[in-house]
Amino acid sequence: MRAKILLTAMALAGGAVIAVAQTNHTGHGDGMDHSAHGKDRPATAGVLSEPGQGAFAALSEVVQVLESDPETDWANVDLSGLRAHLVDMDRLVSDAIVSETDLPDGISAIATGDAATIATLRRMVPAHTAQLARDDRWTVQATQTDDGVELRVTSDDPSVAARIRGLGFFGLMASQDHHRAHHLLMARGRDAHGH
């Protein structure tokens, strides 16, 4: 009995030590001091690497670029607008309900969701369609529906049509890597493509 009590006491004490160690931030090793993050990284000269889904990381990276640029016009900076766009990006990826239909030459994707998601889709899909249309290997069309948006992407080239079907709605929305430049333009207060 005495051995059971001793083992129970040791287990409880060990658990308390682990709990304290997990919540005590003073024991952080090298690289774990939150106040030191980023101090050893060189400022990026207008080049972003965060495409957007990590909203806080994207905002932080944009702030670094703006602060390192002596030409930043702080009167026009619009980080709230960029934040709203990043929220839209998250909502599109996380909350959109998409039904894809394979076509012989591509796909038709019907996207819908709750009222906030539908509003996001109506802002983002047509704007991104303009970016997708810059690729002349496919034809892109976005049509507003009663409860969302239809994205139709097709190509006469069977290998491109296969690529379209492989990308699907979300891959197409993430393609044409313009996001970093677009985010920086938005942060600088320029309406990069209206969403």
Rank of each mutant, 00 (worst) to 15 (best):
K4T: 07
L6M: 08
A9N: 11
M10I: 14
M10H: 05
A11D: 01
V17N: 03
V17G: 05
A19R: 05
Q22S: 09
Q22K: 01
T26L: 10
G27C: 10
D30W: 14
G31E: 14
D33W: 06
D33R: 07
S35Q: 11
A36Q: 13
P42Q: 15
A43T: 05
A43Q: 09
P51T: 14
G52I: 14
Q53L: 15
A57M: 06
V62T: 13
V62A: 04
L66E: 01
S68L: 07
D73E: 12
N76D: 10
A84Y: 00
L86S: 13
L86I: 15
M89L: 12
M89H: 04
D90M: 09
L92R: 11
S94V: 13
D95L: 06
S99K: 13
E100I: 07
T101N: 12
P104C: 03
D105G: 10
G106L: 01
S108G: 11
D114Q: 02
D114T: 07
R122E: 08
A127W: 02
H128L: 04
T129D: 10
L132S: 08
W138A: 12
T139I: 10
T143V: 14
D147R: 00
V149Q: 04
R152A: 01
D156L: 04
V160H: 03
R163N: 09
I164H: 04
G166D: 15
G168R: 04
G171M: 09
M173I: 12
Q176A: 09
Q176C: 09
D177W: 13
H178C: 12
H179N: 07
H182N: 13
R190F: 03
